[in-house]
Design a protein around this nucleic acid. Structure first.
Length: 547
RNA sequence: GACCCUAUCGUCUAGAGGCCUAGGACAUUGCCCUCUCACGGCAACAACGCGGGUUCGAUUCCCGCUAGGGUCGCCA
């Protein structure tokens, strides 16, 4: 009976649902393989939470010998921004999150279950929606925006639940003749789901992370197909994830409440439901309260923030992985140089409460990550960053490649137990500034304060200057520092000093610090002897006599 | 308003009735090491939101309360 209406609504579709289904055979995958996808909207903004979800999804898929897809959910033309798809695809590429199927940075698509861009799947959705109308599982609705607003007001006034449901779902009760008349009149329409749910009865929603939860059944006749002919999220989700063979739908928390609806839709189509995992959004602390990272208010919500500030991508990934599975850091200690992909990630170990993004911890993770890198890699990645965000410094780095690598090599050990002064690529400049006249900013505030505390700083510097030689090896170098210490009545051994501090003006530590301040401008630096070797005799002499 | 989710040190968390005197990491503090700063090592500080049950026993199970968060769109 309703076939007539279905034909009237969709007079010319290029294929039937049977033909579509035939083009999407079930996947031939090993036992236990999972198929996951990440499905962002091209809004021109790449949220850090999107990378988080993608990282986790990719791990689950590839660890199980499965498939990871990138699907573009562009069914809302109003929100779409130019270049947004490229941004999404290239972000995944930059963060080394490899996808097997989907849209690539150059906008081409790979994979046999496409297209992976929803706006290119319009006919597919329409074929299924047409079938639903024919089967009386969906119906056209001619309500205008004003009608819907009026309906809501009426419901609220009556104390009823808002929404298009039950007796309030006016278009549900239109006769076929009425439908036909309205269609022929050219009234705009949408297709709504004819829900058979009863709000007063319960249903069970299963979630991998939260377990089985009880919900009221869904009785909302939600929109399946919008007046522009594109599907809503709900319908696109059902159709795509069925056709593409998704086995686990990993998505944000905000979808949890839609679970009864989605189960109901799968059921109406006669399809097997995938498993679901809802993850909590990343939060931030503001005025003592946690709240979701907002793309409007929080620059750190966007991954461009991390790129600009110079956060190494590896560090961000390590931190996110730690947020996802807190035992990651234990594993990392045991396996300091293994690739991230060796970590046995467990979806079930993810927490269900929203995690607070902790920049102090991120920085700590990053220092550690960088400490494990070779000087060459630090140079290369640092240069890559500088070329985008600090041209002048990039130039200097390129002109002084060998010297830069020598500087970065000081106290750098493969074990990662060496220097930890670089967390961000933008830190490199500060750490090498004393080696280049163009960057040298003189003695820092703390350094000046230190010098003021030591009245005889100038004499010490001059005495030391006389005996310093760049030919000295580390041992000789330090013996000379001690010699100066002795000369000015500073303890040459820390032990002596600690036992009888009253016998000395200070310790060799003060002498070393004094030299360090004059040479590097700072109170902290990697190995002083090595620093002075690289600086060279002339520059050292100049700095020592600068007081 | 209705429905749903979440709740352990400052932060990320471990914990799935006795293994908990609640463990780890970051941060903080102290000590040690050392040829200086750092690195590293050791230690300290520091938490089960509140109230009822169930139980011989509850951080763990149940019920309230409270506090955060989410959903209720022709946005995803």
């Amino acid at each position: 009976m309703t076939q007539k209406i279905a034909d009237l609504l969709f007079p010319s579709l290029p294929f039937t649902t049977e033909e579509v289904l035939a083009k999407y055979p079930s996947r031939d995958l090993p036992q236990g393989a999972q198929v996951l996808r990440v499905a962002p909207s091209p809004t021109g903004f790449m949220h850090i939470g999107g990378i988080y979800a993608a990282l986790v999804s990719e791990r689950v898929a590839h660890q199980s010998q499965g498939v990871f897809m990138l699907r573009i959910e562009d069914t809302d033309l109003k929100r779409e921004k130019e270049g947004a798809v490229e941004l999404i695809a290239s972000s995944l590429e930059e963060y080394s999150i490899p996808m097997d199927e989907g849209v690539k940075g150059d906008l081409t698509e790979i994979g046999a279950y496409g297209p992976y861009t929803q706006s290119k799947r319009r006919d597919i959705y329409q074929a299924f929606v047409k079938q639903m109308v024919a089967e009386d599982k969906a119906y056209p609705c001619f309500c205008s925006e004003e009608d819907i607003t009026a309906l809501r007001e009426k419901e609220i006034a009556l104390g009823a639940r808002p929404g298009y449901h039950g007796q309030f779902a006016t278009c549900r009760y239109l006769t076929e003749a009425q439908q036909e008349e309205k269609i022929k009149k050219g009234l705009p329409w949408v297709i709504r789901f004819k829900s058979n749910g009863n709000y007063n009865e319960k249903c069970i929603a299963r979630d991998i992370l939260r377990g089985n939860r009880e919900f009221p059944q869904n009785d909302l006749d939600i929109v399946l197909l919008k007046s522009d002919g594109l599907p809503t999220y709900h319908f696109a989700h059902i159709v795509d994830d069925h056709l593409m063979g998704t086995t686990i739908v990993l998505r944000g928390d905000e979808w949890f409440s839609s679970l009864p609806l989605h189960f109901q839709l799968f059921d109406a189509m006669g399809w097997k439901t995938p498993k679901y995992a809802h993850i909590a959004p990343i939060q931030k602390m503001e005025e003592g309260a946690k709240r979701k990272l907002s793309k409007r208010k929080d620059p750190e919500a966007s991954i461009t923030f991390y790129a600009e500030q110079g956060y190494p991508k590896q560090s961000v990934l390590e931190y996110l992985m730690n947020l996802a599975n807190s035992n990651f850091e234990d594993w990392r200690r045991q396996n300091p140089v293994s690739p991230l992909t060796d970590f046995p990630f467990k979806l079930k170990k993810m927490g269900s409460a929203g995690a607070l993004f902790d920049f102090v911890k991120l920085l700590s993770v990053s220092r550690d990550t960088v400490a494990h890198m070779s000087a060459e890699r630090v140079y290369e990645e640092g240069l890559e960053w500088a070329e985008k965000y600090d041209n002048a410094f990039a130039l200097l780095m390129k002109e002084n490649k060998e010297k830069m690598i020598k500087i970065l090599s000081i106290e750098r050990k493969p074990s990662g137990k060496g220097r930890k002064d670089i967390a961000l690529w933008s830190d490199i400049k500060k750490e090498v500034s004393c080696f280049f006249d163009a960057l040298w900013e003189g003695i820092s505030e703390e350094g000046k304060a230190f010098l003021l505390e030591h009245k005889e700083a100038k004499e010490i510097a001059l005495s030391y200057q006389k005996i310093y030689s760049s030919a000295d090896d580390n041992q000789v170098w330090f013996d000379k520092v001690k010699q100066i210490a002795d000369e000015f009545n500073y303890a040459t051994s820390m032990k002596d000093y600690k036992e009888h501090p009253e016998n000395f003006k200070g310790s060799v530590s003060d002498i070393a610090s004094l030299i360090r301040v004059l040479i590097t401008g700072k109170l902290q630096s990697p190995d002083l002897h090595d620093m002075m070797q690289i600086l060279g005799e002339d520059a050292v002499q100049k700095r020592l006599s600068a007081l």
